[in-house]
């Protein structure tokens, strides 16, 4: 009798939840045929295009040869695991550069031909035959980018490596969640993401400004790892006669009064102390009074095609100059 009462109580609690989640999943999936949500698209990106890397310091890599329609654009991964054309590994007579970066360099939310990597390749190629290999991978930080370059990039024997650095690149290396299977349910992704947004409004220290700024406290492990990764990359490049440059990319929420000036100054000062050439392209965006005009969508502050064109234009000369030529 007691057990039956407990079972009935559990059923009364769980049954409406299960029915709601089931119906919610169906309704949300139908709604998603009409509208794109950034958080759901990022979840699909992880499911469709990412796999675990055997190298724990890299964490995840792209599934070679995979493709998907994400954030409204087609994304195709080449046989080496990059959103790029097929490239020969062995010697090339062209000036060859490797671009390292995260989802911004990957070109999240824009067509491949609209990404700054492609625009720069086209532009630099007019000046001198040039090949740019885009190693940009969503969710990477500097440590992962450097590991990936050492593991795969060196084989391409580039003349130059350019790291495109974003404010969140000082985050620690992400770990796979044990609850990753829940990402199969759109309703779970929706609730998880929206609850975090709600918390950001109500709980102090949860907004992007506070979160990103706190990454650069001197004792933050992610920032310490970032510095170590840059030191290692500089050494590797020096040993192989490769020129190294870093471009700091803007966070696109407030551009006329940039909130991360202090943090980017700290990054730039560190890089200069390591004799690494650095360019902050944020000032090239200072005239933008409506930053959302440069966003992929209202719920996604990744740079759109217009912003990619600005990044390419602002960094072109810096990237083109100097370095050994073949």
């Amino acid at each position: 009798m007691g057990l039956s009462r407990v079972f009935r109580g559990l059923l009364l609690v769980l049954l409406p939840i299960v029915v709601f989640l089931g119906l919610g999943e169906v309704v949300l999936r139908l709604y998603l045929t009409q509208r794109i949500f950034y958080d759901v698209e990022m979840s699909r990106y992880a499911q469709l295009l990412k796999i675990e890397s055997p190298n724990l310091r890299i964490g995840h890599i792209h599934r070679p040869g995979s493709s998907a329609h994400l954030m409204g654009v087609d994304v195709a991964i080449n046989s080496a695991g990059f959103r790029d054309d097929e490239r020969r590994v062995d010697g090339s007579d062209l000036r060859r550069m490797v671009f390292l970066g995260d989802s911004l360099t990957f070109g999240w939310g824009v067509e491949q031909h609209d990404s700054f990597a492609h625009l720069l390749e086209t532009s630099l190629d007019e000046e001198r035959p040039t090949e740019i290999l885009n190693f940009g991978t969503g969710n990477y930080n500097t440590t992962q980018e450097v590991e990936l370059f050492v593991e795969q990039g060196l084989a391409y024997q580039p003349d130059k490596v350019v790291v495109f650095y974003f404010i969140n690149d000082a985050e620690p290396v992400p770990k796979k969640s044990r609850l990753a299977f829940l990402a199969n349910f759109r309703i779970v992704t929706f609730y998880w993401s929206r609850m975090k947004q709600l918390a950001a409004r109500l709980v102090p220290g949860q907004t992007f400004r506070e979160y990103y700024a706190a990454l650069y406290d001197d004792d933050q492990p992610g920032w310490l790892e970032t510095q170590a990764a840059f030191v290692r990359l500089a050494e590797v490049c020096r040993d192989h006669g490769i020129e190294l440059k870093v471009v700091l990319l803007p966070e696109l929420h407030a551009l006329d009064e940039y909130p991360f000036e202090r943090e980017y100054r700290k990054v730039a000062n560190f890089l200069r102390s390591q004799r690494i050439a650095v360019l902050d392209v944020t000032p090239a965006f200072a005239d933008v009074s409506e930053p959302q005009s440069l966003w992929v969508s209202p719920d996604d502050a990744h740079p759109n095609a217009l912003a990619h064109r600005r990044i390419a234009a602002a960094s072109r000369e810096f990237i083109a100059t100097g370095g050994a030529s073949r």
């Binding site: 958080d39 990022m42 992880a46 969503g138 992400p174 907004t207 992007f208 929420h253 966003w295 502050a301």
Partner: peptide
């Protein structure tokens, strides 16, 4: 409805 607004949180990624 309450959260259907421009992004105000840090980039959040579902890694896996």
């Amino acid at each position: 409805v309450a959260t259907d607004a421009p992004q105000t949180t840090p980039f959040e990624y579902q890694v896996f």
